[in-house]
């Protein structure tokens, strides 16, 4: 499981990188199930081609490069199923809007928010990188509380900790994240 120079601990992959890869994938395929499958396939492909990892990039960067190829394959698969691009237009029955309906159809509403969407996705990945720097257990509890919005009681039960332990963990995570985002996100 290890090359002479670079140790790869695959047991840690899921805890360390799954969420980052999942966010990366979902921002490109917009489907939870497909994104999850792509992450799984990425890990398996990574495992199979571990010998190719030279350690020139970080493990995360290397896994992302595998995921990118998986995403491209996914697009190809989807396109080959479709056969050809479809253009769907909804010719509504309301004829009162004559004159401006085509403009409305052509206008890409999303493009108005494209910049902010892109920024949000970038921010999401920046947050994930910062979360990756937290100790695994701390990151897991923080994500359960903050992103999955689970109840304090259920998290405490799951991890066998007291509520005050949980708040100490949350506090430490928040302080580290503030520092990390201050260094990495706001300065850029």
């Amino acid at each position: 499981m290890e090359s002479p120079k670079h140790k790869i601990d695959t047991a840690q992959w899921v805890d360390r990188y799954a969420d980052y890869l999942f966010n990366y994938a979902i921002s490109r395929v917009n489907d939870n199930y497909i994104a999850e499958e792509l992450v799984q396939e990425t890990f398996i492909a990574g495992l199979k081609s571990m010998k190719n990892f030279k350690g020139e990039a970080t493990e995360r960067t290397w896994l992302i490069s595998i995921l990118k190829r998986k995403i491209i394959d996914q697009y190809r698969k989807a396109n080959s199923k479709k056969g050809q691009a479809e253009v769907r237009m909804d010719f509504t029955k309301v004829s009162d809007n004559e004159g401006d309906w085509l403009e409305e159809k052509v206008e890409d509403r999303n493009s108005l928010n494209a910049e902010s969407n892109f920024e949000n996705k970038e921010l999401g990945l920046a947050i994930e990188i910062c979360l990756e720097k937290l100790p695994i257990k701390q990151a897991e509890i923080f994500k359960q509380k903050t992103i999955l919005e689970q109840e304090t009681e259920s998290i405490c039960k799951e991890h066998n900790i007291t509520a005050s332990n949980l708040w100490v963990i949350i506090h430490r995570a928040r302080v580290q994240l503030m520092q990390c985002l201050n260094d990495d996100w706001f300065k850029n």
């Binding site: 999942f22 939870n32 992450v39 949000n120 996705k121 921010l123 999401g124 985002l181 996100w185």
Partner: peptide
């Protein structure tokens, strides 16, 4: 600020 970043960051996890 951190909370609002999380809210605007479109972040998900498994």
């Amino acid at each position: 600020r951190l909370t609002s970043l999380f809210n605007s960051g479109d972040i998900r996890c498994l």
